[in-house]
Amino acid sequence: MVMSRMDPIAPPREGDLMTATAVKPTRDEPKIRAKGVSVFYGDKQALFDVSLDMAEKTVTALIGPSGCGKSTFLRSINRMNDTIEGARVIGEIEIDGENINDRSIDPVLLRARVGMVFQKPNPFPKSIFDNVAYGAKIHGLASSKKEMEEIVEQSLERAGLWNEVKDRLHQPGTSLSGGQQQRLVIARAIAVSPEIILMDEPCSALDPIATAKIEELIDELRSNYCIVIVTHSMAQAARVSQRTAFFHLGKLVEAGETEMIFTNPRDSRTQDYITGRFG
């Protein structure tokens, strides 16, 4: 790693659109480092040359108006774009210094290290227990039934759902409320013991109370994971994240400490978006 002591958010370059602020690095090495990432869907380019670092034990929020490429960027971190017909990713994304777009990386193994939570809660057509156990089972993480039960309990505990479901682990996952379902799929992601959790607008389908619970959970999870969250709500970004990156029209405009972005943005577009002039 040549750029080890540089700003963990993004290496600023001359003439780059990005004018990242000089922030003290939280870690020596960023957990995730994206370098010149562009994504194409067929002939259409959705993401233009994005470089961004995301640190360990930090929540990084990706904000920006609809269609700005923030979800596309998020999906390239666990190679979910592979599942889309005609999608093409160029550039490098390193996790712990290893390029995940390298041929030698199996996306199946990568996704065991990078969990993901989606907009709409998507529990499988299985019981609550089996939903949480699913990832651990396919990766062979538990050698005995007891061990699996421990994994499930711990994951549900961490997702703040254990007390609500411990007496009905064998009911279908879809019988839970929306907010509970979302915590269930977070538990499901945690059960695989990932290093990174990606969240794609995890609260957009939830009511304010369920949202508050998820945000609280994100804050707790921060102590163990590198979290990247896409959100439409600037208030949410301000509440849960330590670092924020602002995307606009497929380009990364500005990235830095959340407080800086919200109080003293460098770019006028960021300023306009944050103050609600567009988006």
């Binding site: 666990n78 979910m80 599942t83 199946v108 193994l109 990568l110 996704r111 065991a112 969990g115 993901m116 989606f118 907009q119 709409k120 998507n122 529990p123 499988f124 057509p125 299985k126 699913y134 990832g135 396919i138 990766h139 799929v185 499901r188 992601a189 695989v192 990606l198």
Partner: peptide
Amino acid sequence: TLRDGAFALGATKSETVKQVILPA
């Protein structure tokens, strides 16, 4: 979203089909 959910957990295509899509 079910397929995405399974893939994101690191399920292979056949695991996704057998254990998630078909039961659904």
